[in-house]
């Protein structure tokens, strides 16, 4: 029954390695749905009841590091449709851009090879490529009065932003009043778009028109 210390050490190390290999790996215990997170942030000074109409972009902004372009895949269309649906369910009336909407809604896909997106930088992209095309207020800069922490985005994210067009001329800038961000596996799927946009609105009960 007696053991030499070297043999004992070998046994012990074997036991440690075995026991540690029995550890639960959190990422292996997630379904695809469970990998996803839904983050929303808002301008606390914005009163969503004062807005009545909105317009939504007819394509999706694809933001990749320092570059941006527009696209319209099946998934992009599903996101635009879902966002339109839930805005209307909250009482906002869809109008065209030429009808001076109170809220401008953009849907974006965000990618980063550097692994880090700072939302101040992200919002700055609108001042370049997208500003003239989307909302036609090229004389005004964009401003996000709130900010996410710096998030690591490597696999991509889907973003829905609301811009205050109603008060743009008064403020001399276009404020972001709400941002929803979706991250995780399977987010660029047309089949998942509706439930994911719904999740953003479900946790933002303050988005409601006063009709």
């Amino acid at each position: 029954m007696k053991m030499k210390s070297s043999a004992l050490i070998t046994v012990l190390l074997g036991v440690i390695v075995f026991v540690s290999s029995c550890s639960k790996q959190p990422l292996n215990n997630l379904t695809q749905d469970e990998t996803r997170i839904y983050i929303t942030d808002r301008d606390s000074s914005a009163n969503f009841a004062t807005y009545k109409t909105f317009s939504i972009s007819d394509s999706v902004a694809v933001i990749h590091d320092q570059y941006a372009n527009k696209a319209l895949t099946a998934s992009d269309s599903a996101y635009i449709a879902a966002t339109t649906k839930y805005m209307q369910q909250r009482g906002y009336v869809l109008v065209s851009r030429s009808q001076n909407p109170d809220i401008g809604v953009d849907v974006s896909r965000v990618y980063s090879t550097t692994g880090v997106i700072n939302y101040y930088d992200y919002s700055g992209y609108y001042g370049g490529y997208y500003d003239p095309y989307y909302w036609g207020y090229s004389d005004y800069g964009y401003y996000m009065p709130y900010a996410y922490d710096v998030y690591q985005i490597t696999e991509g994210a889907m973003s829905v932003d609301m811009l205050d067009l109603k008060n743009a001329s008064t403020n001399k800038k276009i404020n972001f009043i709400w941002t929803g961000l979706i991250r995780g596996e399977g987010i660029f799927s047309a089949d998942n778009a509706d439930t994911q946009v719904k999740a953003l609105f479900d946790q933002s009960t303050y988005i409601k028109a006063n009709n």
């Binding site: 540690s20 990998t35 839904y38 983050i39 929303t40 301008d43 709130y146 922490d149 933002s204």
Partner: peptide
């Protein structure tokens, strides 16, 4: 609640060794 006006919907996993 993950910020002053920020909320995050997620499945939370804690793992401690």
């Amino acid at each position: 609640k993950t910020g002053p006006n920020e909320t995050t919907s997620a499945v939370l996993s804690n793992s401690i060794q």
